[in-house]
Amino acid sequence: MAHATIEWTANLAGVFDLDALMRLIANQMRLHSDGVFPTGGIRVRGYRVDDYVIADGACDEDAFINIDVKMGAGRSAAFRKVFFDALFDEIRNFLGDLFDRCPLALSMYVEEVEGWKHNSIHKRLKG
């Protein structure tokens, strides 16, 4: 299980490619985690945030992109460090000059969670 939620401020509408960012994250989880994240458990979603205040609230151009990742417990600290450092670098590179075009705060938080789930996607993938 690896679920990523991207929150982004409404003033970034049309400024970056959300679909490409979601696919980048999913692909990194699928292709670069050495199977630690089963393909059938990967979820990436994006939510536009329409109501927000950033910093002192004085600049309507201030923007943020926040990525929250939830994963099941048990991944080693070494794996988490290497994988999420690389993922964050990929995301920063993907956003490219967006940091120069507008005041932008990018953050990513990763947490291990305990949850209950039932998933028949794994069965389809084994096909």
Rank of each mutant, 00 (worst) to 15 (best):
H3I: 10
A4V: 04
T5G: 07
I6L: 13
E7M: 04
W8H: 13
T9D: 00
N11F: 04
N11M: 02
L12E: 00
L12Y: 01
A13V: 10
G14V: 12
F16P: 05
D17V: 12
L18F: 03
N27M: 06
Q28A: 15
R30T: 07
R30E: 05
V36M: 05
F37I: 13
T39P: 09
T39M: 11
R43D: 02
R45I: 00
D50P: 00
V53A: 07
V53R: 05
V53K: 03
A55K: 06
G57K: 03
D62F: 07
A63N: 03
F64V: 08
F64Y: 14
N66K: 07
I67M: 00
V69R: 03
K70C: 12
K70H: 12
M71A: 11
A78V: 06
A78G: 01
R80F: 01
K81V: 04
K81R: 12
F83N: 02
F84E: 02
F88E: 04
N93K: 10
N93W: 03
F94I: 08
L95P: 07
L98M: 06
D100K: 12
D100R: 14
R101K: 15
R101L: 14
C102H: 02
L104R: 04
A105F: 00
L106A: 09
Y109W: 10
V110A: 09
E112P: 11
E114Q: 14
N119I: 13
S120Q: 11
H122P: 03
R124A: 13
L125F: 10
K126M: 11
